[in-house]
Computed example of a mutant assay.
Amino acid sequence: MTDRSLPGPSGGDTDGDTDGAADAALGARIREYRMMRRMSLRALGEAAQASPGFLSQLERGQVNCSIGMLRRIADSLGLTVADLFDQDGRPGPRVVRRADRPMLHTAPGSRKLLISQRPLSHLEVYAGEFDPGASTGDDAYTHGDSQEILLVISGGVRVELDGRAHDLEAGDSVEYRSSVPHRVVNHHEGPAEILWIISPPTPD
């Protein structure tokens, strides 16, 4: 699993010293993002179909890997391959206009929009928009085991947590673990808007 077919970030031929520096930088970024997500080497290995020993060597810059493996690692961390090669460090302030929010696929009549920008670090924030009668889906769902806060911005929603219903109005919030089965439904006659705040980030 030490495929040397993957070039350095520049994509060109490099000497051994430069290759080693690129491997070390890539490994350090993988470890940084893994720690941000509070993932063990074993958990990342299971998600990316790699052994913990190989990932440990990769993080220390002792080996590199194929593009296919790198894509699986990036996907498991909620990143793109380009994020892993980003040399700019931690970004400064970034403005996201309402019209530019990336939209995720959801149930009919509802929209889930990403507010926090990738690559995600310590938290992720989503806006949710629900037409009257719309919901997050027929079934409750879980994702990871993070702290999650749901805040109602406008309208009202019913939040079902492990089968127990909580009716919330604008300004109300509820906090729970993302490992608890949860579902949101707009049971009002008007639209509703909410925020999800999750720390640390979890798989969608």
Rank of each mutant, 00 (worst) to 15 (best):
A140T: 12
I198K: 11
D138G: 14
G20P: 00
S5V: 08
E124V: 14
I73R: 04
V174W: 03
Y141L: 14
E193M: 11
G45K: 08
T18K: 02
L113E: 15
E32K: 13
R37C: 00
I73V: 15
R177K: 11
R111Y: 11
G171R: 04
G8H: 05
V180N: 01
Q147T: 13
A22M: 04
V157L: 10
G12V: 09
G109H: 04
G20E: 14
L55T: 08
L77P: 02
A140V: 06
R42F: 01
G92C: 11
G128W: 07
P132M: 05
W196N: 11
G8A: 13
W196K: 07
L161H: 04
L55D: 04
S154R: 10
Y176S: 04
Q87Y: 00
L84G: 06
G190C: 03
T80Q: 10
G171C: 06
V157K: 04
Q62L: 15
Y141P: 00
G53I: 10
P93N: 08
T18I: 09
V152R: 06
D83V: 10
G45R: 01
F54V: 03
G133S: 07
R111L: 12
G155R: 02
A127E: 15
Q147I: 03
I197T: 12
V174I: 15
V157Q: 01
M35W: 00
T18V: 13
E169Y: 00
Y176M: 12
L70E: 06
D15T: 07
G89N: 09
D13E: 15
L84Q: 07
R101T: 12
L55N: 04
T80K: 04
H166A: 07
R31G: 05
D131W: 04
D172N: 14
G11W: 11
G163K: 11
D86Y: 10
H187V: 12
L123Y: 11
L26I: 04
A134T: 13
L6C: 03
I73L: 09
R37H: 06
S40Q: 05
R94I: 05
L150S: 10
D19Y: 06
V185E: 11
Y176D: 03
S5N: 13
S135R: 09
M103Y: 01
A24P: 00
G171P: 02
G11E: 09
S66M: 07
Y141S: 14
